[in-house]
Write a protein that binds this DNA or RNA. Structure first.
Lengths: 151, 151
DNA sequence: CAATTTTAAGACCAAATAGTCTTTAATAGG
DNA sequence: CCTATTAAAGACTATTTGGTCTTAAAATTG
C-alpha cells in the first residue's frame, strides 16, 4: 500500500521523535543502520522531508537530523501525503475510478470502511502523540527492530 | 495494495462469471473495451490465468475466454495469490519483517485486524457466490464501469 | 483442406520506483 | 582560518511493473 520510501519516512520520523532533539542530532548513518534502511536512499529521503518541514537538520560536526516543535506537530498522514501523495491511498481496491459509496465496486464495502478508519487514525494524531504512545506501551509495542538496537 | 494486473484479473474474472459460459465465450477485445483495460496486456494476463486454471479458453472463430465449473469455484484470494503472490498482502504496513501480534510495529493494531477480515472475505467466497451477490444487489452494487456498457 | 479467427508464446519497449555515487556547501572545533 | 564532518544537490544506474508487438498454433467454417 505504501511505497518503501513512505515506510522508511514514517519509521525515521518516529525514530527521531523518540531519540533526537535540537541538541541531540542524529546522522543518517546511524539512522540507516538502526532502521536497516539503505543509507544513501535515506539521506535523499530525509532531504526531501526537510524541504517539506517534516524534519530539521544541521550540517557539520555534530550535525544531523532532529525534530523541532513544528515537526512534532505533523501527522503520519502528512508524511504519507508528502512522500506518496494521496492518490494510491484513496483509490478503489479494484482500480475503478468511478467507485464510491453511491456507486460501489463489488468489494467497496468490504474495504472502504477500513481505509477510512486507518486514514482518520493517521490524520488525528501528531507525531508527538504517536511517540508518547509508543513509549507508554513499552518495548512490546515499540519499533522493535531499532528499539533493541538503540544502545 | 494490489497491482494493476491483479485488479484487472479480478475484474475480468468477475466479468466472465457474469457474462460468459462454455458456449458463450468472450474475446479479449470485448473484455478490454468493456473493462477499459489495455487489450494486449489483458491478453497476456488471461493467458497466465488460464495456466493457473482460473479461466478457460478456446481458440479460433467463436473462441474466447469463459469460466467452467472449476474456475467458478476459485476465490478472489486465489486470483491475488496467482497474480501478486501473498507477500505484499501479508507484509507489515511499515515494512518491518519482524512485525506480528506478539511483536507489533506502532501501527500494527491499527491495520492488521482489517487486513485479516478482508483476507478472510476473499478466501471464503467462491467466484460463483461472488457473482451471485453482484447480480442480487443489482446495478448499484455491480461492476458499474462495465455493467452499463454491456449492451 | 484452405481461409479466417482467435488464443499462446515470447521478445520487446516504457515508465516508475528504488537505490547509488560524486560534488558542493555549511558548520564546528582546534 | 584550516580541517574535518556533516547534510544538500543532483546526476546516474538498476529493478520492477506496466504495456506492446509479432509470430505461431489451434479451431471453426465453407
Amino acid at each position: 500500500m505504501l511505497s518503501n520510501a513512505a515506510q522508511y519516512a514514517i519509521r525515521s520520523i518516529l525514530y527521531l521523535a523518540l531519540y533526537s532533539s535540537a541538541t541531540q542530532r542524529i546522522r543518517t548513518k546511524k539512522i540507516s543502520q538502526d532502521l536497516e534502511v539503505p543509507q544513501p536512499f535515506l539521506a535523499k529521503l530525509l532531504q526531501r522531508l526537510g524541504g517539506a518541514d517534516l524534519v530539521s537538520s544541521s550540517k557539520g560536526p555534530n550535525g544531523g537530523f532532529y525534530l523541532n516543535k513544528t515537526n512534532r506537530n505533523k501527522t503520519v498522514w502528512d508524511i504519507i501525503v508528502t512522500v506518496d501523495g494521496t492518490e494510491k491511498f484513496n483509490q478503489c481496491f479494484l482500480g475503478l475510478h468511478t467507485c464510491s459509496d453511491n456507486n460501489p465496486c463489488p468489494v467497496h464495502f468490504n474495504v472502504s470502511p477500513f481505509k477510512q478508519i486507518i486514514k482518520k487514525d493517521f490524520k488525528g494524531k501528531t507525531i508527538a502523540q504517536f511517540s508518547e504512545e509508543i513509549k507508554k506501551r513499552g518495548t512490546v509495542l515499540s519499533l522493535k527492530d531499532f528499539d533493541a538496537l538503540h544502545k
